[in-house]
Amino acid sequence: MITKRIIPCLDVRDGRVVKGVNFEGLNDVSSPVELGKFYNDNGADELVFYDITASSEGRSLFADILRKVAEQIFIPLTVGGAINTLEDFDRVLKCGADKVSVNSGAIRNPDLIYEAAKKYGSQCVVLSADVKRVDGRFTVFAKGGRINTGLDALEWIKRGVERGAGEIVLNSIDTDGVKNGFDISMLEAVCEAVNIPVIASGGAGCIDDFTVLFSNLPKVDAGLAASVFHFGEVKIPELKVRLREKGIPVRL
């Protein structure tokens, strides 16, 4: 039986893991290599590394770290952050990434999804969307949630799937950092719109937020979170035991 995936996300800047609340106020948490290995050994089904570095020196540092992480972890690894061209795909895939997450780069150039899917396969292309309600409408934001693109989120995600995206990460800006649960209604709308795996992101604060997510939305494939895992508020082995008790299939 296919299982629900639990995915810690590591935001990395200049070689260190940071976590923003509502995308602001970043705190240094730990070393990406140590944290990645910890999660690999403690029940994570997959890892996401998000590079929020701005400088090119930072990028090469990230590449070195990514290689070190990939040498030590034997679960799927997704990398995102400043992926704008096929060369960027190539750069992170060569360092050991299995999938590449696109966000603002795909908004600027939607052909990026198609070209990457053609070259590397759809399984490699993850469309990550930061979505916020604006006047009651699900709207796509770019640049780490700072810029309102005016794009309708459901239309944008459907277009992404048509162009070849293999998975969707839906990050609700409305619930991100609030730790009051995933954005069930937004996720439900996306799950109805597409038939590829949907990864829920934004809002996890405790174990029950995950049981509520998977119980209410059987179509959601995975739950992604950062700080609740990094600070040990949710321990993945305990989370998975609880999910299994609730009848939700997980890898133990």
């Binding site: 039986m1 795996p197 494939d221």
Partner: peptide
Amino acid sequence: YKVPHIGWNS
């Protein structure tokens, strides 16, 4: 059932 078949299966 979604295609591709992605994830951990037994």
